[in-house]
Amino acid sequence: MKKYNLDDWVAYIQGTLGEEEQLEMEELLLQSEEAMEQYLLAMDGLEGELPEPEDHDAFTDRMMQQLYGKPVQHSPKDRVKPRNRRWYEHPMFHYSIAASITFILLISGVFQNLSGGSHALLDQPSGSFTDSIIQKAFSWLDALK
C-alpha cells in the first residue's frame, strides 16, 4: 500500500479524493497506527475549518440510522433533567453539622477526658508519648462500660 503524507490526509478529510483512493486510505487507517497518527494530526490542523453539526441530536440519529439501518426512537426518559439539590444534600450543611458536633464535644470536655490533659502527657518521664495516649484511650473506653 502507498504511504500517504499529511496533505493527502487533509484531502481525505475534506473529501477531495477519488473514491478508490478514499477506500484505500480507510483500509490503511484500520491497519496502520502510523496512518492513524497522520490522520489525527491532519484533523487537529483542520479543527477550526471543519463545520459543526447544527443539531447534534439529529446528527446522532442520522448516524445511528446509517449504522443500524433503522431509526432511533427517543423516549422522554432519555432526556436527563437537572435536579435541584435539596438544602440538606448540600456539602456545607454536612460540614456545619460536623463542626457543631466537634464544638459540642470540645466544650463538654470529652477530649480532655480522653487525653487526661495535655500537660500530664508531656511531663511523664517513663514510657513513650504513644503509650500514654493508648493507656488514656483504654481507660476512657473502660469508663464508658
Rank of each mutant, 00 (worst) to 15 (best):
Phe111His: 01
Leu50Pro: 06
Asp44Arg: 02
Leu67Met: 13
Glu24Met: 11
Gln73Ile: 14
Ile101Arg: 11
Lys3Asn: 10
Ser128Pro: 00
Glu34Leu: 09
Phe138Ser: 09
Leu17Lys: 03
Gly18Trp: 03
Phe111Met: 02
His94Arg: 02
Pro76Asp: 14
Gln31Met: 04
Leu105Tyr: 11
Ala11Cys: 03
Val110Glu: 09
Lys70Cys: 15
Asp57Met: 14
Ile107Asn: 02
Ile107Ser: 04
Asp44Ile: 02
Leu30Ser: 12
Ser96Asn: 10
Thr60Tyr: 00
Ser128Asp: 03
Trp87Ser: 12
Ser108Asn: 09
Leu144Ser: 12
Ser126Cys: 05
Ser96His: 11
Glu37Ser: 10
Lys81Glu: 07
His56Thr: 14
Gln135Leu: 10
Met63His: 15
Gly109Val: 06
Ile134His: 10
Glu52Pro: 07
Ser115Val: 09
Gly69Phe: 03
Glu34Lys: 11
Leu40Ser: 05
Asp142Asn: 12
Tyr88Gly: 02
Val110Leu: 06
Tyr39Phe: 04
Tyr68Val: 15
Ser126Lys: 09
Met25Asn: 02
Asp7Pro: 00
Ser126Pro: 01
Trp140Asp: 04
Ser32Gln: 12
Leu30His: 13
Asp8Met: 07
Ser100Asn: 07
Phe129His: 00
Ala120Leu: 05
Leu122Gly: 07
Glu52Ile: 13
Glu34Pro: 05
Ala137Gln: 12
Phe111Lys: 00
Leu141Arg: 13
Ala137Asn: 10
Gly127Thr: 03
Ile104Glu: 10
Gly127His: 02
Lys77Ala: 13
Phe93Asn: 07
Tyr12Met: 09
Leu144Ala: 13
Lys2Leu: 08
Leu17Ser: 01
Arg79Asp: 12
Ile101Gln: 08
Tyr68Asn: 15
Asp61Glu: 14
Glu27Cys: 08
Val72Gln: 12
Thr16Asn: 09
Val80Ala: 14
Ser75Ile: 12
Pro91Gly: 05
Met1Gln: 03
Ala11Pro: 00
Asp44Ala: 03
Glu19Met: 08
Ala99Pro: 00
Gly116Trp: 06
Lys70Asn: 15
Ala98Gln: 04
Gly116Leu: 05
Gln65Thr: 15
Trp9His: 00
Leu122Trp: 08
Gln112Ala: 08
